[in-house]
Structures are given as C-alpha cells and as structure tokens.
Design a protein around this nucleic acid. Sequence first.
DNA 1: CTGAAAGCGCTTACAG
DNA 2: CTGAAAGCGCTTACAG
Lengths: 347, 347
Amino acid sequence: MLRRPTIDDVAGLAGVSIKTVSRVFNRAPNVRRETREKVFAAAETLHYQPNLSARQLASNRTFLVGLVYDDPDPETTNDYVTAIQSGSLLACRDYGYHLLINPVSVSSPKLIDELTALNRQVDGLIVLQPLSDVRAVNQFITENDVACVRLSQRPLSGYASISVADVEAADEMTEHLLSLGHRRIGFIMGHPEHGQSHDRMAGYRRALERNGVPFDPKLVAQGLFDYDSGYACARRLLSQGDLPTAIFASNDPMAMGVLSAAREMEFDVPGKLSVAGFDDSPLARHAYPSLTTVRQPIASIARLATEELMQRLQNGGSGDANHCLKAEVILRASTAAPSPQAGHASS
Amino acid sequence: MLRRPTIDDVAGLAGVSIKTVSRVFNRAPNVRRETREKVFAAAETLHYQPNLSARQLASNRTFLVGLVYDDPDPETTNDYVTAIQSGSLLACRDYGYHLLINPVSVSSPKLIDELTALNRQVDGLIVLQPLSDVRAVNQFITENDVACVRLSQRPLSGYASISVADVEAADEMTEHLLSLGHRRIGFIMGHPEHGQSHDRMAGYRRALERNGVPFDPKLVAQGLFDYDSGYACARRLLSQGDLPTAIFASNDPMAMGVLSAAREMEFDVPGKLSVAGFDDSPLARHAYPSLTTVRQPIASIARLATEELMQRLQNGGSGDANHCLKAEVILRASTAAPSPQAGHASS
DNA sequence: CTGAAAGCGCTTACAG
DNA sequence: CTGAAAGCGCTTACAG
C-alpha cells in the first residue's frame, strides 16, 4: 500500500494552502465555492481521508462519544442497552463521530476513576440509567463540567436529559387492565436503584386511584428487572390468599418469569391470569402467549440523546434541556377480561 | 479543571527525560527498576494519563480494534453478535485498546469502501461471519494485507481464523436425538450464506449416516436463522405426510419458531415432537419447554480472536493460525424419546 | 541504561 | 477569502 496521502498532498494538487483544505474539510465558512470544489476534487483523486489522530491532537477533540452503562453481568445481554447502542451508533456516524462502548459496574469502587479516565478520551458522554441516577456520578458530572447527555427522568441542572413518559405509560397499561374488569392487579417493581422503577410504580398507583381501586401493598412485589426475580415474585403473588387476576411486571424479562410461574402453577394466561410487561423487547412478541407490553421509542431516545450531545459539543452549549418521549401500549394475547370465577382458585 | 498533565510534567517531576517516561509507559525493556518506580510515582501524583491522540499520531498506531459484522436490521438484536462484542471489549481493555463497533451491510455496494475507511482508523479488524465468508471481503483483506482475525471455519491463507466445531456439535446433537429413538429427524438449515449452516447440516448428515438412518431431503427445510423462518419451516415439516418426531433447528431463534408452530398445530413438545436448537441464547433457557441446544463458547471465541489479533499487531506476526473450539450439547426439556404412536398423528 | 532532536498530520490564532 | 508559522503531546531512530 502506498503512503497515505496527507493534507499537504491535497493542498499541492489543488493549488491552495493546507489551511484552506482544512477549512473545507471542517465545513468552515468563508471558502469560495470554486475553491472548495477544487479541494474536494483533489481529495477524491488521492483518496484522501483526514488523519484522525492528527485532527484530535491539533484540535484537542477526539471525535469520540462514550456510551456508559451499568453492566452487572457481561454474560447476559441487555436488549435495552443493545438497542440504545445501535441507535446511538447510527447517529454518531452522521456527525463523523465514533462510539466507544463502556460497560462499567455501578457498584465498583473504581467507578468514578473509570469515568474520569473515559472522559479524557472522548468529547462527550451518554450516560444510561441507573448510572444517571447515582449521586456520585452526577456529582462527578457537575464538578468536572462533563459534556454529557443523561438518560433519566430526573433532571440535572445545567445538563440535558432524555426520558420516557414512564408514569403515563404505566398508568395507561394499568388503565387497560382496569378497563378489562380487573380489580386485583399485582405489580412487580423493577430494580429500586432505577428511576424508571419508581415512575412505573407511580403510574400504576395513579391509575388505581383515579379509578377508585384501593392500593393494596400485598399486591406489590419487589423485583430486580431480571427473569428470575419476576418468576420468584409471581410465585409469591400467586400463592397468597387473595389472588390477583392480573400481574403487571415492570419489564419484559420479569413478565417472562411471570409467564413461567403461571404455567407451573397452572394459572392459564390470560384465562385465569392476565400478564403485562414493559419494554417490548424481542422476547415479548414470541412469548407464549404473546405479551401485552409497552413499546419505548428506544431508537428515538438514542438518536435524540446523541444529537443533543452533538449540539452541545458544537456550540459549547449547556443549560437545561429535558426531553420526554411518549411510550405506547402494545396489546397482545397475554391480557384479557378476568374470568368470573377468578380469584377463587387455589395456589 | 486544571491543565492536563503531559509527559513533560512527569519527566520534570521524576527528574528524567521524556523519553524515559515514554519507555516506562510503553513497557519497553532497558529501564532500571528504580527509574521506573520514580516515573510511576510522579505519574501517580500528577494523575498523568498519556494523551491517546499524541501516541497515535507519533506511533502511527490507533490502539483501536474494529469489530465488523453484518447487520441487516439494526432494529433486531443479535444475541450472538452482542456476546462476541462484549467478550472482545473485555479482552481489548486488557491490552489498552478500545473496540470500535462497526455494523455493515453485506449486500451494500459500498461495503468494500466502508471496510477501507474503517481499516485506516484502526490497527486491526475482527471480522465476523458471514462477512468472513464473502469472497470480496477476503480479497480486500489479502490485497491490502489487512491486520485481522476472521471468525470462520474456512481458513484464509496467511491469516488467523477462529471457529467452533459445528460439524461435531451438530453430529452430537443428532446422535442425542437418535439415541432417544428418533428416526425421522427434521432439520432446519440456517442462512445459506453462513458457513456454519453448511457445517451443521454436515454434522446432521454424518450422524444419520453413521447410524444407518437414510437421509431424507423431505425432512430438510431452508431457514434464515430468524424466528419467522423457523416457524414457517416447522409448519411445512409438520404438514407433510410422513411426520418427523423431532426437529433440529440450526439456531435458537428458529427453534423458538418451531416451538410456536408446534403449539399452534397441537404437537406436544416433547411428547409428540422433540425440538433442539443451537447457540444457547438467553431465549433457550426460558423457553417453554426449555430448549435442548448447543452451547458455543462465545466468550472464549471473542477473547481468543482478540488475543490473536493483539499478537499479530505486536509481533507483526502473520501466517496461518486456525483455532477450533468445542461446543457442548445442553440437554433440557424440549427433547425426549418419541411416543409409540408418534408419526401417525394428523397435521 | 538514558537523552536531545526531529517529526507525525493536522488546527489555531494571527495576519493580511 | 486565504496563507505562513507555531504547536498539540507523544514516539522514533540515532547517539552516547
């Protein structure tokens, strides 16, 4: 392979200074159109591509975005994170940026050190939940004036955050179950460290209240957003005296656990028990019965977060900006009206 | 935030030249232990971290590895790719490298242009299937002498490849079904462009042959590695005259499709139909019934590929190196002995 | 075992 | 609208 062409080669061929070539490639204003075209033509013939490292060093920018998320177990794939990642990647490309994937552990004592190191290697961060809800992380952000966009429903003064209307979505799903005739609706909360968990719970309670259905703590179980906890919570909820006729799990993996528990305990779904999830992960559509759930606009979230970050990097912009996107209830086969004799079944 | 410390600051504080600092950080030999410790101490107090861009520019290396894979649909998560990615990421970290995730489209006319551009921004590539089985891609690799490791069972002269013993694994799974007493075993092939598809098919045939069971083309259906194709193939296989008592699908998503089709057509699994998959994706354990499948050592594959690449980058090493890892049959609830009356059921 | 000098390929004020 | 010079923070031969 020949020596890679440099900015000098392009400048020479185009008959301009390297500064002009630089201007053209950085889309700076104040370049005559004619000149620009000459430069592009020269670059084309030479197959010139700017050297990233040189740009980085000279401009003190990296053209890199870091995506940071909690990854308790590298063995288990997290569909939500994967979707965010792929959406963000696409948006980065549009701006000539690369995405650096950075799983960290929220409970690691080195967390802040890791974030510090990462922050030096990228122009900005996209911080997913639950990291974006961790006090130490937000403190790190504000103290170091980190360029970042947070995925969280709790705003951080001076920064941008993107979130989904979890309260509304959970409210809507609960309303759906109520409208089918359910009155005893079990709820499986998500991981308590995630802001979403509390919002979804709030939506559940709001819908009950609005419909005059008393909130019963015995119908609520604390899960951890994974299959196993959903399974365990469902077994508990389905073993007590006064049975629920529906269970609303805060995410799809937990809802899958509920389906398994129901099958084991011979609760026909949706005949004897309705089950709803949240996320519309790939599992949901192919579950049996297919899962009623909430579809989050993950691709839009990722794109919006990335674009918001790009804005801030370009304009040095800061200030508050809190975007909240609507989610959508997806009705499938796992929810139906309660059967007349429901609630009288044995465990 | 204060000015970031540079190599000069460290050298000043440690009382050595910057060259020595550089040597220490690059783990070069020929540095007295005492000196090294002085340098590390100075770096520690200053919280010094080498500037990546400067290293890149000066050394003409990027400390970046590109992971390239075919991504036909960014909306759908591919558990296999995600697992490779996370394993490779971990290995990269051990070597001070970052991983650049690069989904491309195998059918894009710009594929080679994209690979060319990517190749200039990284030190080496890890190429997943089916890209690693595409002639144009391999041609690009050899013509440009690209530093890379391929995930493929078809070796490429001068390069390293990592693969899984697909033939053996498929053979073993088929043997398992035969040993249960199945004689009419349906097989759903994977995407024909993937090398694995053909190997798994070969393993299936080999086991049949060894056991004196004639190969019946009517029992084979062509899938595409996704749920929908598995579902469609199963419907076809279960609608013909001479029914299979077991279906071996070339991967788990297709096996999930088989389970759905079986449920719809009222083939009890495993009573009337045994079902086996391949991959041991997260779906498999939580499926109903839980899926007998083949566990691939994905983490090991990813680590091995990354380490092999690192070797080559460090030693400028080349030459053939073909690693083949063993897979493992995981027995779960979806396979059992055929019932006596099986094969006489209606569709 | 260690150092002084040159240079990697860009961008950034500063001029004009 | 365009250019000449300096410099970003490292590494790389080359000396010694």
